[in-house]
Amino acid sequence: MDDTGGTAVIAENLRKRYGDTIALDDVSLRVEAGECVGILGVNGAGKTTLAETIAGLRVPDGGRVRVLGLDPRRDRARLRQVMGVQLQQAYLHNALTVEELVRLFRSFYPDPRPADEALELVGLTGQRRTRFDRLSGGQRQRLSVTLALIGRPRIAILDELTTGLDPRARRRMWDAIRRLRDENVTVLLVTHAMEEVARLCDRVALLDGGRLVLVDTPAGMAARAGAGDLDDAFVALTGRAPEGPEEAE
C-alpha cells in the first residue's frame, strides 16, 4: 500500500511560478512518518505554495509529490480521508456556530474525534454555541486547527498554527501538536515562530526565494549559521533572495 515504508511525504524537484515570481525552484523534501517538520522562510519565500502543493491544492509546474504513497491530485479522494489541512485563510460558514461546524466536519469522516474532545483540544468548549462571525481571530484559528484534526488524520498540514494567538492559546496548540506526535501523526508546520520550531519540530526546511536552502534539525540550523538561537540563524540564512510579495492567495 504505502510503497514508501516509513516516508510520509516525498516532494521531488518541485517548481512553481506565478507570472514572473518564482514560488518554488527545484524543491525536494522527504518527511518520515511521525515526524514534525517546520517549513520556514520570509514572507513570499514559497512556504504556503509548498504546503498547498503537498496538500494537492496547487498543481506544480514541474516535479512530483507523493503523500503516504498517494498522488495528491490523482488520488485526492483517498488522500483526503487521512490528511488534515489548516489553511492560512481560515474562514467558514459565518452564521453557523462552533458546535454546528464541528458537527458538519465530523460527518465527513468515518471515525471522527468526539466533538467534546475536539473542542477541548483547542480550548473552545466555552464557545460551542458562538456563531463563527462572532469569534475572535484567534478563536477562528483554533477552530480551523481542530477541524483539520477532527478526522484523525495520519498527516496534518498546518499553515500558521499560532499566528495571532495569545501565549496561553499558543501553548495549548503546542500541547495539541504534541498529542498528535504521540499518535504518530506526521505534521508539516508552516511557521514564523522560532520558539514553536524549537519546541515542536524534529527538523526544519528553510525556504528563501523559492529555493530550499537548508533541511536540518533546529539545533543543526543554529549551528550551521553559527548563531546563538534560531532567530539569529533565521536572519543569517535568509534574505539572500529579494523579499517577495505576500504569497498569492
Partner: peptide, 27 residues
C-alpha cells in the same frame, strides 16, 4: 498501516450539510 480507501460521505453527511445550508439561509 491499513490501506487507505476513498470513502464518500454518506447520507448523514448530506443531511448535515443540508441542515447547515438551511440554517445559513434562515439566519
Amino acid at each position: 498501516m491499513t490501506p487507505i480507501v476513498a470513502r464518500r460521505p454518506g447520507p448523514r453527511a448530506w443531511l448535515t450539510m443540508i441542515q447547515c445550508e438551511a440554517k445559513m439561509v434562515v439566519r
